[in-house]
C-alpha cells in the first residue's frame, strides 16, 4: 500500500479520534491539577502543623511512586473495595493527583520567594492571612511559578499516554493499534510523535503569550534588566 495513502486515509483519521481522548484527559486534568497544586502549596506553607503534614505526605507519596502504579490502583485495585471508576475517570483522577503534587512544589518554591513585607503590609491593612494569601501572595507566586507549571503541563500532555495502560485508547493507544494491525511501526509512531510535538509547541507558544500578558514591570529578572 502507498505510504501517503496509509497516512492520510487510515492513520490520521484514527489518530484524530485518539487526539480527542487525549485532549479530554488534559483538559479535565489540568485545571483541577492546578487548583490542587495551589491548595497543597498553600496548605503546606501556611497551614497549621496537621494540614502542613498532610500536604507534605501527599506530595511525598505521589513523588515517590510511579504514576502507572497509581493508575493501576485506581482502576484495577479500588473495585475490590467497592469503588469503581471508568477507565477515563480513573486516568483523570490519577493525572490530577500527580499534576497537583508536582505543581505544588513549583508554587511552594514561588511562595518562598515572596518577601515577608508583602504579608506584613497586607496584615497591617487589616487583611486576614487568608485574604493576604489570596489577594497579595498567590497572584505574585503564580506569576513566578509559570515556567515550572508550564513544564508540568507539558509532562501531563505526554504522560496522558499512560492512560492506554488502563484501556483508554488515546493518541498513543490508537497509534499502537493501527501499527500492529498494518505492521507499519516506524511511520505510525513518528506521526504520533509529530502530533505530540505539535501539542507541546502550541502549549509553549500559549505560555509565552500568557507570561507576557500577566507580566508586571520589575517582578522578574528579565524585566528588571530592561529598566
Amino acid at each position: 500500500m502507498d505510504q501517503i495513502a496509509f497516512i492520510f486515509d487510515i492513520l490520521l483519521p484514527a489518530l484524530m479520534q485518539g487526539l480527542v481522548i487525549t485532549l479530554k484527559l488534559i483538559v479535565w486534568s489540568a485545571p483541577f491539577g492546578l487548583a490542587l497544586g495551589i491548595g497543597v502549596a498553600a496548605g503546606r506553607q501556611y497551614g497549621g502543623p496537621v494540614l502542613s503534614r498532610v500536604c507534605k505526605t501527599f506530595v511525598f507519596l505521589i513523588k515517590g511512586t510511579p504514576l502507572l502504579l497509581l493508575l493501576f490502583i485506581l482502576y484495577f485495585g479500588l473495585p475490590s473495595i467497592g469503588i469503581t471508576f471508568t477507565a477515563l475517570t480513573a486516568s483523570v483522577i490519577g493525572f490530577i493527583l500527580c499534576n497537583g503534587a508536582y505543581n505544588s512544589e513549583y508554587i511552594r518554591g514561588a511562595l518562598l520567594s515572596i518577601k515577608d513585607g508583602q504579608m506584613i503590609a497586607a496584615q497591617a491593612l487589616g487583611m486576614t492571612r487568608a485574604q493576604a494569601i489570596r489577594n497579595v501572595i498567590m497572584p505574585q507566586a503564580l506569576r513566578r511559578a509559570i515556567p515550572g507549571l508550564s513544564n508540568e503541563f507539558i509532562y501531563l500532555i505526554k504522560y496522558s499516554s499512560l492512560a492506554y495502560m488502563i484501556t483508554v485508547v488515546e493518541l498513543s493507544g490508537v497509534g499502537k493499534n493501527v501499527a500492529t494491525k498494518y505492521f507499519i511501526y516506524t511511520e505510525t509512531f513518528m506521526v504520533v510523535g509529530i502530533v505530540y510535538l505539535a501539542l507541546v509547541t502550541i502549549t509553549t507558544v500559549a505560555v509565552n503569550i500568557l507570561e507576557k500578558r500577566v507580566a508586571v514591570p520589575g517582578m522578574n529578572r528579565a524585566a528588571a534588566a530592561q529598566l
Binding site: 508583602q118 506584613i120 503590609a121 520589575g218
Partner: peptide, 13 residues
C-alpha cells in the same frame, strides 16, 4: 491603625 514601613512594602504586582 495605619502603618507606613521603611521599605514601603507596596504590593509588587
Amino acid at each position: 491603625i495605619g502603618m507606613v514601613f521603611q521599605n514601603y512594602y507596596l504590593f509588587d504586582h
